[in-house]
């Protein structure tokens, strides 16, 4: 166990906690989804630091899954939720 890496992870955790304000306050839906993306990136960084700090290389695999699936929620949001319901304003394909 190295306390230094765990301390760095502890520094990164408030970055997640403060970002939650934007979920609660965000004017558009995309702002809220962007915050989820911030959580993904910060979560990967915290997992990498914890993996070095706790001496457990298995956590790298969890970070790999996190980064692999990070874009999935955002893309579903853009394609399914945020686009207007059925009205097509532009001709060139959005997806």
């Amino acid at each position: 166990m190295s306390w230094m890496h765990i301390f760095f992870a502890l520094v990164l955790l408030p970055a997640i906690g403060v970002g939650m304000i934007r979920i609660l306050r965000g004017p558009t839906a995309a702002d809220r989804m962007m915050t989820a993306q911030l959580f993904g990136t910060c979560g990967v960084a915290i997992l990498l630091l914890l993996s070095a700090g706790m001496g457990n290389p298995v956590l790298l695999d969890i970070a790999l899954v996190f980064s692999l699936l990070a874009a999935l929620a955002t893309m579903t949001f853009i394609r399914r939720t945020w686009r207007g319901s059925g009205k097509k304003k532009h001709e060139y394909p959005l997806q």
């Binding site: 899954v65 692999l68 699936l69 929620a73 579903t76 399914r80 939720t81």
Partner: peptide, 20 residues
């Protein structure tokens, strides 16, 4: 690992599609 795969990859997109 299961929580990351299910929570980020499966449940979130399913909820968003259901919302639409």
């Amino acid at each position: 690992l299961a929580e990351a795969a299910l929570g980020a990859g499966l449940t979130g997109p399913l909820f968003l599609a259901a919302l639409r």
